[in-house]
């Protein structure tokens, strides 16, 4: 099971975080700090897995990928396949790229909700839901359409059925 999904920039600032376990705010910040401490000092050509028993009380592995200015970090238990998770990160970044067009750190900063929603289409409650980036994009677009439609309905006095399909 995935414990948390973090996006941290090169200077240790969190840009997106999803925790699938209930932790207090201080504990979350501590996890972010120690995760950053672990990945930031690793060289580019090393493998993308780190084991550290201090996170979440042991039995966890940290899988990360470094793209330009951002670290994408997944902390999960040992039952997850590490290569599978690595692929998941790849899919997430590809999906972000598709939906933002050349995604960069600023996109995520100013569109956190969107980035978070896309992630929600892929991972729910710490379990992988969908790994096809086309599917994810289309699902997200569907959600967006629904939102927009609702906004229009709010403006127009004629209420139609909320069911869209």
């Amino acid at each position: 099971m995935i414990r948390c999904f973090l996006v941290i920039n090169n200077f240790g600032k969190p840009r997106l975080m999803k925790f699938y376990e209930r932790l207090s705010n201080e504990e979350r910040q501590r996890v972010i700090e120690s995760a950053y401490g672990l990945v930031s000092k690793r060289l580019e050509d090393l493998c993308n897995f780190v084991e550290d028993d201090s996170l979440f009380g042991g039995e966890t592995q940290l899988i990360y990928r470094h793209f330009a200015t951002l670290y994408f970090i997944v902390i999960c238990d040992k039952a997850e396949s590490e290569l599978g998770i690595l692929d998941l990160i790849q899919v997430y970044v590809e999906t972000l790229d598709k939906s933002f067009e050349n995604v960069c750190e600023l996109d995520i900063i100013f569109n956190q909700q969107k980035a978070g929603l896309i992630l929600d289409q892929m991972v729910t409650g710490g379990l992988v839901l969908e790994t096809n980036s086309q599917e994810i994009v289309s699902k997200y677009k569907e959600l967006e359409r629904n939102m927009k439609q609702q906004e229009r309905e709010l403006k127009s006095p004629v209420a139609s059925s909320p069911r869209t399909f």
Binding site: K18, R22, M147, Q150, E153, A159, P162
Partner: peptide, 21 residues
């Protein structure tokens, strides 16, 4: 109400991050 989806969504999103014990 019938138009509450957008607000529900942001509500759940907020709670998923903010909720403590």
């Amino acid at each position: 109400n019938s138009n509450s989806y957008a607000e529900k969504r942001i509500g759940y999103l907020g709670l998923m991050s903010l909720l403590d014990e």
